[in-house]
Amino acid sequence: MKRIPSAYNFAMLLAAFAQPGLSFAEVQPGGFTRPQFEASRPPINNKTQPARAIHADLSAFADETWILPVRSSHLSPGQITTRTLDMPGLQPFFLVGEDPQSLAWLHQRATELQEMGAAGLAVVVTDTQALARIRAAAPGITILPVNGNDIASRLKIEHYPVLITATSLEQ
């Protein structure tokens, strides 16, 4: 009689290794396997999406001191070479810093930027006073403090101020 439990235990051990790899959810009591979980999700109804873009209410983030200072080590003030882009659907945006060149550029192009609905990213900002000076140079335009290193790498740019649209990169 002692041989049956030993053989049974050995067979159970082999059966565990013979099964294909189980996920963590499959070995948990009451866990869902991926196919069961996916079948239980409601279908996506694409007709419920709005016909136009919804813009985030940025007024909820009144206190931006938690993100400051912002430094973008891949970017510095300077001249850029205008070039064409092919990015259909891209909404216009611009990169600026707290330097005098950016402030003058913003002041000079504020009306044009506002008319095209461009949003601004302040990629070098030391404190709330610097952010206020940047925003004062282009009143009525949303300008948020953001690290611009990823954008700089993807668009292969080294300098700001710069305006990025669906068709061009320009200063």
Results as ranks from 00 to 15, higher is better:
129 Q>Y: 10
105 W>E: 07
135 R>W: 01
127 D>Q: 09
115 E>L: 08
21 G>F: 04
159 H>K: 08
142 T>R: 02
106 L>K: 01
41 R>Y: 11
94 F>M: 04
92 P>I: 02
60 A>Y: 12
144 L>T: 01
86 D>V: 07
170 E>Y: 07
45 N>E: 13
89 G>I: 02
86 D>A: 09
103 L>Y: 10
43 P>V: 15
149 N>D: 04
147 N>A: 01
57 D>A: 05
101 Q>A: 14
36 Q>T: 11
138 A>Q: 00
93 F>P: 01
2 K>C: 11
170 E>K: 11
64 E>W: 10
158 E>R: 11
17 F>P: 00
107 H>T: 13
110 A>T: 10
31 G>A: 13
96 V>T: 05
139 P>S: 13
69 P>G: 07
108 Q>F: 08
9 N>E: 12
94 F>S: 00
102 S>N: 06
93 F>Y: 08
58 L>A: 09
19 Q>Y: 03
76 S>D: 05
3 R>V: 15
134 I>Y: 00
75 L>F: 05
44 I>K: 14
82 T>Q: 14
109 R>T: 06
91 Q>K: 00
84 T>E: 15
10 F>T: 14
135 R>I: 01
149 N>L: 00
112 E>I: 11
9 N>Q: 09
6 S>N: 13
75 L>E: 00
30 G>R: 12
22 L>H: 12
71 R>A: 03
34 R>Y: 12
96 V>F: 04
139 P>N: 03
95 L>A: 01
60 A>K: 10
157 I>C: 04
65 T>F: 06
142 T>Y: 04
89 G>E: 05
128 T>I: 15
94 F>Q: 02
48 T>G: 06
38 E>L: 15
102 S>T: 12
76 S>Q: 09
120 G>I: 00
138 A>V: 04
35 P>K: 07
62 A>Y: 06
56 A>Q: 04
133 R>T: 02
125 V>H: 01
93 F>K: 03
66 W>F: 14
90 L>W: 03
42 P>K: 15
43 P>A: 15
97 G>L: 07
141 I>A: 02
15 A>G: 09
110 A>C: 09
22 L>Y: 07
171 Q>G: 09
6 S>T: 13
47 K>Y: 13
61 F>K: 07
9 N>F: 13
146 V>T: 03
158 E>V: 13
99 D>P: 14
75 L>V: 06
37 F>D: 13
33 T>F: 08
121 L>Q: 03
19 Q>F: 08
8 Y>T: 15
76 S>L: 08
35 P>T: 11
7 A>V: 12
56 A>V: 06
55 H>Y: 11
87 M>K: 12
84 T>Q: 14
109 R>H: 11
38 E>A: 14
143 I>E: 00
134 I>G: 01
67 I>H: 03
116 M>S: 05
160 Y>T: 01
4 I>K: 05
89 G>S: 03
78 G>H: 04
76 S>W: 05
165 T>A: 02
37 F>A: 15
46 N>K: 15
136 A>M: 05
147 N>P: 02
53 A>P: 03
67 I>R: 07
84 T>D: 10
66 W>S: 10
87 M>V: 11
90 L>N: 02
75 L>N: 02
143 I>L: 08
62 A>L: 08
102 S>H: 08
48 T>N: 09
131 L>S: 01
118 A>N: 05
159 H>G: 06
